[in-house]
Structures are given as structure tokens and as C-alpha cells.
Simulated scan of single mutants.
Amino acid sequence: MVEYRDILEKSKKDALYGREISPPHVKKDKCIGCGLCVDICAALVFELREKKSEVIYGEKCNACGHCWAICSEEAVTQPQVITTTSLRPGSEPAVSADSLQLLIRERRSVRLFNDNAVSKEDLIKIINAGRYAPTSSNRQAVNYIVLSNQQKISKLRSSVENFMEKTFKMMENRAIAFFYKMKYGPLAVDLLRHYAINYQILKTRKEKKAYFPLPFGSAVIIVHSQSFDSLAQFNCAIALYNCSLMAHSMGLGSCFMGFVQIGINMDKKIKHWLDIPKGNQAYGAMVIGHPNVKYRRLVERKEPNIRWL
């Protein structure tokens, strides 16, 4: 058991969580022995002993806050998760299923924006929606880069465009195309060729930069995390989607920009300019702004492919 604890402690020091985590504390005089904290804890921190909850493996705690949130007697405490807000969950969900479904369907990709700036306060509110997204093992390892300066956004746009120009030109070489197919798969090559055709068409149109590779929005949010984490892409995608829903609820538009993400990860100069740490990778990019268009109708999607077992 000593060896296990040493390994666990070292893994935390090696930035498994990237933050200081203190074990929870149980106030025995308040604990009624219901066992909810024992049952709810995915890290197996608690055990019920002599009809009282007890912290046994405090070093395994990932500070998810389930124990503190579920305790009816406020017998469990942990500094990292105690909030100062007076808000509490209601007896019913804050949003009805129909309202949430409508919000999800209303949110669409926006690529045309007016010149009004998005305030820093609004951007923080949007990022806070990502902050409260779930992450694997509650690692909370999603990092955000925000570009709200138009000169820097223009530099990002031109850098990604230059990368795309070079990439599309290289794809004309059969040997390089074969290498890309072996490394990234045939679908990736087909997509690159598809976008190369679109790009050539857009180059002839003066308004091309309204769409490609990065729309003229007020701000760009880039999310990045450790590349060694097999679930980093999952964590970042959920966080960024939360941000897009919050932006829509605030009357703002957003659009996920796949080529910006690809350009950042494949062009070391862009990655260095954005100061993304070594060992980290961009897992999403999204432009935000005040929409210059209004979608008037909801659209249908194809039926989900479900296999019931």
C-alpha cells in the first residue's frame, strides 16, 4: 500500500491535476452515517466505519465536490470546492427539456458578423460556461487562449491561410499525398482535397475571408490541453460547446474553426506565436461575434444511427 500511495503522490506532482488538492474532511459530530458520500465518490475516498463516514484514501481525491454537494448535513468540507454563491440547485432542473432542446437546435454556425466588439466581461462569462463542463477524472486541464485584438486575429488568419496554401500545394504531389494518407488516413486526404477546391473558388471572391479560413469576428477562443491525455480532445470539445451555447444564449454568434485548429498543431510557427506549451495541443478553435444575420427557421438532421442492445 505504501508503494501505491507513493506512485499516486508522484503522479499528482507530475501534473496529473496541475493544482493542489487537499483531502476532504468529515465533521463527525454532523455526520448521520447515511453513506451517500461513500456511494457517490468515484475515487473511493470514503468508507463507512462505526456508522460514520471516514476519509480513508484522501490522496485519491480529485476535488470533484460530489461529497460536499450531496451532504444534507454539510458534514463534508473541502476548500477547493466550496462556492461563495448563494445559488443552490432547485427541486427541478433549471431548464426544461423542451427549452434546452430548442436552445440546442437554435444554435447554428455564424460566419457573418457586424463590427460591434464583444466585451471582456461577456467573454469571461462565456468561458465560465466551459469552466463548468465535465472533464475526465475532474482534471480541469482545459486551457483557453483568447484573441480579441483585431491585429492579432488578422495575423492568425493570415498564418493559417499561408499554412493552407502550402498544404494544398503539397497535396498535388502524389508521394506527399500518399504519406498523408498513411499518417492521417484516406478520409483526411479526401477532405483536404475537397477544401482545396473550395479554397480555390473562394480565392476568386473578394468576400472570401468572411468565411475562410477564419471569419471576421470580434474574438477567437482556442482551447488546448496535454497531448498525452487520451481524453483531452473530449474534455476540450465539451468545454468549447458549452461556450458556444452560452454565446448563443447571450445573443452572440459562434463558429467552430477546424482549419485553425489543424494549422496550429501542424505549423510550429503558429503554435509558438500563440505560446502553447510544449506537450500541449490545440483541440478546438471558435470565433465569436455579434451576428450580422438571423436564422429564421429550424432545420432537420438525419435520424440518429442507434443500435439497441
Score class of each variant (00 low, 15 high):
Asn149Pro: 02
Ala196Arg: 11
Val81Pro: 08
Lys208Thr: 12
Arg139Pro: 09
Phe234Tyr: 14
Cys34Ala: 12
Leu252Pro: 10
Arg301Gly: 06
Val299Arg: 12
Ala210Gly: 13
Leu102Phe: 09
Leu44Gln: 02
Cys31Arg: 10
Arg131Trp: 07
Leu187Asn: 15
Asn280Ser: 14
Cys41Met: 06
Gln80Ser: 07
His25Ile: 12
Ile145Ser: 01
Phe259Pro: 10
Tyr283Ala: 06
Lys294Tyr: 10
Tyr57Gly: 09
Lys206Ile: 10
Cys41Asn: 11
Ile262Thr: 02
Ala239Val: 07
Ala94Asn: 09
Val223Gly: 06
Ser99Asp: 15
Cys34Phe: 07
Lys271Met: 12
Leu123Glu: 04
Met171Ser: 12
Gly251Gln: 08
Ile104Asp: 02
Ile264Tyr: 08
Gly289Gln: 07
Asp6Val: 01
Ile238Tyr: 03
Gly35Trp: 12
Gln101Asn: 13
Ser230Leu: 12
Phe259Leu: 13
Asp275Met: 01
Leu103Cys: 06
Glu172Phe: 03
Ser136His: 03
Glu74Leu: 13
Tyr195His: 06
Leu214Gly: 03
Tyr180Ala: 13
Pro93Val: 00
His66Asn: 15
Cys37Trp: 02
Gln281Pro: 06
Gln151Asn: 15
Tyr184Cys: 04
Ser218Arg: 05
Leu156Thr: 00
Met257Arg: 14
Arg105Ala: 12
Arg19Glu: 00
Lys206Cys: 03
Asn265Arg: 03
Asp29Arg: 13
Ile221Val: 11
His248Gln: 09
Gly18Ala: 04
Ala237Ile: 02
Gly18Asp: 01
Thr77Gln: 10
Ile104Tyr: 09
Ile197Thr: 03
Asp29Met: 01
Val38Met: 06
Ala69Val: 10
Gln226Tyr: 14
Asn242Pro: 00
Ser148Thr: 00
Glu50Ser: 14
Ile176Tyr: 15
Asn235Cys: 06
Arg297Gln: 13
Arg105Cys: 10
Val55Phe: 03
Phe234Gly: 00
Lys52His: 15
Met257Tyr: 01
Asn128Leu: 05
Phe179Asn: 08
Arg297Phe: 04
Arg301Pro: 05
Gly279Asn: 05
Asn292Asp: 15
Arg108Phe: 11
Ile70Lys: 07
Tyr144Lys: 00
Glu73Cys: 02
Tyr180His: 15
Ser53Glu: 14
His272Phe: 01
Arg108Ile: 12
Ala133Gly: 02
Ile306Trp: 11
Arg157Ser: 00
Glu106Phe: 05
Gln80Ala: 15
Met182Tyr: 01
Leu48Lys: 12
Met170Arg: 14
Asp39Trp: 01
Asp98Ile: 10
Asn143Ile: 02
Tyr211Glu: 07
Met286His: 01
Leu102Ile: 05
Asn242Cys: 00
Ala282Val: 02
Arg157Phe: 07
Cys67Gly: 11
Ala15Leu: 12
Asp29Pro: 08
Gly284Trp: 04
Ser136Cys: 14
Gly65Cys: 05
Cys67His: 07
Tyr211Phe: 15
Ile56Val: 15
Leu274Met: 03
Gln151Phe: 03
Cys243Ile: 04
